[in-house]
Design a protein around this nucleic acid. Structure first.
Lengths: 346, 346
DNA sequence: CTGCCGAACGCAATCGATTGCGCTATATTT
DNA sequence: AAATATAGCGCAATCGATTGCGTTCGGCAG
């Protein structure tokens, strides 16, 4: 593996000049610079990044942490994030985090390897108080994308808006016996459930805990099993399926039993996967701000690099209901009433 | 950011001892090693990787190159690859390659940054002769996973087997007017089409070029458009859809027109996406060896690290047809005849 | 013609961990 | 007890690029 010294020797200039020429710094005449750049390309010599970042102390790229347990949407968002981060910062490393490993250690290692900024893509790491403190002290740049890092910049996704709209769609279109597949309970509602609760309150309705079905995992097959179970519960006429995979599983179970969608049962998913539009009955679903959240994250961190000392920022982006046939808006005049969201949500 | 010297000072030992202790090398007493490791964890000090790999010349992790244009399956395979590579090699960097950038330069940069091995995940890079030569000379370790790198280790996926089975399923179950969505032509058939051609030959049938429909892109929406077009072509009774996304698009277009699947038209996809099983008519599809190809790649490279001088290896893995309702095996006695594959395929 | 200024460029120290070599203290052998 | 082997450990050189500082040289004003 050749080094810059090779170029220096061949052209009879000093190592420093070669370094300056290739780094695009001033102090090199245009003619000499051109010859250096040309020869470097001809020989295929790249500056050794280990040496470069060791000496200069500056890291070249950014890092994205992704959970090994990420769902399909999260994967896609992370991929988008990596792609855009690459445009913005030049080089990106992706690190797959599995839950056994010590995230505190991993974070330190990552910065020891040299990284300008670190994105947490869709999972909330269990960072120790001491790690957070150390990160603040060393002015590390962390950004949670749909994940909370206390005291650091965050892109937050407001899931409540979409589920609020979904529940109101059910209620306003006259569904009586609705089921919500949920990962939480009324005592400690997660953001999806909060939106549902607010929808009921907004219509002076009460959400009965018997309407909640607890989620056991977020896959097609689990959805299929849940769908079968729902059928044994009698006159259910609407189901919110937690995410699209589960909902598609439910959809399949209902189809298999000859249930008509949406006539007998209306279905709403969450995530707005591409495939939902291509089911035989297109799926109504809550869309997440994929592109927007990624763009916001990149811009936030670019801003942060410029302004290391300003207090941390949280940017919240809304979800929104995409109405398709599996849960249609019956009366067109209801449209406004379903989609308008009270101010306190924003 | 603290360095190993801090530990050395606090414990009154030399820097070399700290380095040896943390790297797990011999030449340090058990007692001293324990104190060093403990203090390093307490202070949260990690060896600077830039310095480490600069000095030792050995890189710590591996790199996966992924194309920005990758399809869903390729993404999933790459993700699997990254996950497993991480287990096997400790640290993995993922690099998103977009077609504008010079892959030759990128490859050199990547190794300049220090990497043990480089996987090409599902796209064939246009590497110059000189780059390949340089890579060989410097004994770099490259591995194509479903992509060809001349002169280097490769995991190849034999797509022909699956499409051979698919075409035979159509023919043996009596379909007369079949369409194959293809990305190539009879003059220069790609691997999918080769399998189809062989299936026709095996049954003394001739594949008419009018049966081929050229693919314009591999998305749901393109499939939907193709599906509409197919309906205007009269008595089509079977369609192979190139991949599952296109096939699901076609499926939707057919459903919308009241076509019954598989009674009127049989459908076979490629990739065996999870969602295919959960369409109202489950999708028959050709499955790729996802896990197997990733495992093989990892093992191949581990072997290569041990044996740098042996000639390059190519491991070929088969695809296989997964029969579901969208293209059922009518007569059960045909099963054997459809799934058995002649020796020359293996 | 002299003096001054700034651009170009080389010198050499430096980043932090690694590692061959050599010294020392302890264990083992005779 | 003396001789020898061995493990522990420190010294200092080293990896390759970066960068502050000092030198040189050409240009330009006085």
């Amino acid at each position: 593996m050749d080094t810059l010294e090779e170029i220096a020797k061949q052209l009879g200039v000093s190592l420093s000049t070669v370094s300056r020429a290739l780094a695009g710094k001033k102090g090199v005449s245009a003619a000499k610079r051109q010859r250096i750049v040309q020869l470097s390309q001809q020989l295929g010599i790249e500056p050794n990044q280990s040496a470069s970042s060791l000496r200069s102390g500056t890291a070249q790229g950014v890092t994205v942490f992704a959970s090994i347990r990420a769902t399909e949407v999260v994967h896609r968002r992370n991929h988008l994030l990596i792609t855009e981060a690459k445009q913005a910062f030049g080089s990106v490393r992706m690190v797959i985090v599995n839950e056994e490993e010590n995230i505190n250690r991993l974070l330190r290692q990552t910065f020891a390897q040299g990284t300008r900024a670190l994105f947490f893509g869709g999972f909330t790491p269990e960072l120790d108080e001491s790690t957070l403190h150390w990160a603040k002290e060393n002015q590390l740049i962390l950004c949670g994308v749909d994940s909370d890092i206390p005291g650091f910049d965050t892109i937050r996704i407001n899931r409540s808006i979409g589920t609020y709209q979904a529940a109101r769609l059910f209620l306003l279109s006259g569904r009586k016996n609705i089921r919500y597949i949920c990962a939480s309970t009324l005592d400690a509602p997660d953001s999806r459930l909060q939106g549902i609760i607010q929808a009921y309150q907004s219509l002076n309705n009460e959400l009965d805990s018997r309407c909640l079905v607890s989620l056991l995992g977020a896959s097609y097959s689990i959805g299929y099993r849940l769908g079968k179970e729902l059928l044994s519960q009698g006159a259910v006429d609407a189901v919110f399926g937690y995410n699209d995979q589960v909902t598609i599983g439910i959809y399949k179970a209902l189809c298999d039993q000859g249930i008509r969608i949406p006539a007998d049962i209306a279905l709403i998913g969450f995530d707005n996967l591409d495939v939902g539009e291509y089911l035989s009955v297109p799926l109504t679903s809550v869309a997440q701000p994929m592109q927007e959240s990624v763009d916001a994250a990149i811009q936030l961190i670019q801003w942060r690099i410029e302004n290391p000392h300003l207090p941390c920022k949280t940017i919240t982006l809304p979800t929104r209901l995409i109405a398709r046939d599996s849960a249609p808006i019956g009366d067109h005049s209801l449209r406004e009433e379903i989609f308008s969201v009270p101010g306190e949500f924003q």
